[in-house]
């Protein structure tokens, strides 16, 4: 009895303490208020709202009814194109995510020992494609389907092919090409983060490692460098995964919408199709929820894998 009372009392005093702290730091709430208000309105609420709407048949015109899991059942059992989109999205993300991540890490590591001025130039060369907006459209010119496209022209001239290849209209080439272009634009924030992480490693760690028997640069990388920059590896992974799922715009710009035979149709395109064009808001919300779950799931998985680095 007396024990119970004590628990209740400590609970109350804790609430009281929190309340006092809140009152004491009123100004902190005022400082975060504008940001949190906008963030909540345009990021948190949309996610929660789409979870709710995905359970309805909302279409912007009629009063929505709750249909519970009908949208999800239709999605997985009755929508062949969605299954294609899932497959493409996963192929895309599984290739682009890890490859761009490793490429960022590798290049950052390679250039780490260059003199600062040269390193700055090389950094620019690798980083520039990711910030140059729509310059990736040049790949459309390089691989254009007529003989004036650079690749076709060279191949024709060398006699390797006899007629032009319609690169962006041929289901065989669409996906690999989009992956190449996505990789080209993918050395972004994670790349810069890795460069900074490598720069921040204490030099004496390497000397200590050499004394302790680290014999070559690969051992040094695995036992000293990577464990020392784990926080950056984690941040870089989050950035890489998020963008690996976000290349729909590149595909649409290069291959048109829908891409030939849905060869490069991703979940993002499916979402766009139902949400932006057909206004089936309920159904498209369920697509958004699935995409959301996949992205968060991928992040969790990678977090687990990365915690093994250096062990």
């Amino acid at each position: 009895m007396s024990k119970k009372k004590a628990v209740i009392r400590s609970d109350m005093s804790r609430a009281q303490w929190t309340w006092n702290e809140m009152k004491k730091h009123k100004v902190a709430y005022a400082m975060v208020a504008p940001y949190m208000l906008i963030f909540t309105l345009f990021t948190v609420v949309p996610v929660l709202l789409s979870m709710v709407i995905s359970l309805t048949n909302f279409n912007l015109l009629e009063v929505p009814d709750f249909v519970f899991l009908d949208n999800y059942i239709r999605l997985f059992l009755d929508d062949d194109i969605f299954i294609i989109a899932c497959k493409n999205t996963l192929i895309f993300a599984i290739i682009v995510g890890p490859v761009s991540y490793l490429m960022s890490l590798m290049v950052a590591w390679f250039i780490n020992e260059l003199p600062p001025k040269i390193r700055a130039v090389v950094t620019l060369i690798f980083y520039a494609p990711s910030i140059s907006g729509q310059v990736y459209l040049i790949w459309g010119t390089l691989f254009s389907g007529d003989s004036y496209g650079w690749v076709n022209g060279i191949l024709l001239d060398l006699g390797i092919i006899t007629s032009e290849i319609q690169f962006f209209q041929d289901a065989k080439y669409v996906m690999p090409l989009c992956i190449v272009v996505a990789l080209w634009t993918s050395l972004g924030t994670s790349f810069l983060s890795f460069i900074a992480g490598l720069q921040g490693i204490d030099r004496s760690m390497y000397e200590a490692g050499a004394v302790d028997g680290v014999r070559n640069r690969w051992q040094e990388l695995w036992f000293i460098t990577l464990p020392s920059m784990k926080p950056q590896l984690m941040f870089g992974a989050v950035m890489a995964i998020t963008s690996a799922f976000g290349f729909g715009g590149v595909v649409t710009a290069l291959c048109g919408f829908p891409s030939v035979d849905y060869a490069a149709h991703t979940i993002m395109h499916h979402l766009d199709d139902y949400g932006g064009m057909r206004f089936e808001v309920g159904y498209s919300s369920s697509i958004a929820v699935v995409l959301f779950a996949i992205m968060i799931g991928a992040n969790m998985l990678v977090k687990k894998v990365l915690s093994k680095v250096g062990q």
Binding site: F42, T43, V45, P46, V47, L49, S50, I53, V238, I241, T242, S243, F245, G246, G248, M268, L271, D272, G275, G276, V281, S284, S285, A288, L291, F292, M295, I296, N299
Partner: peptide
């Protein structure tokens, strides 16, 4: 961890 397309419709 998620791309803004997820929230586009809502």
């Amino acid at each position: 961890m998620f791309h803004s397309t997820v929230t586009a419709v809502t």
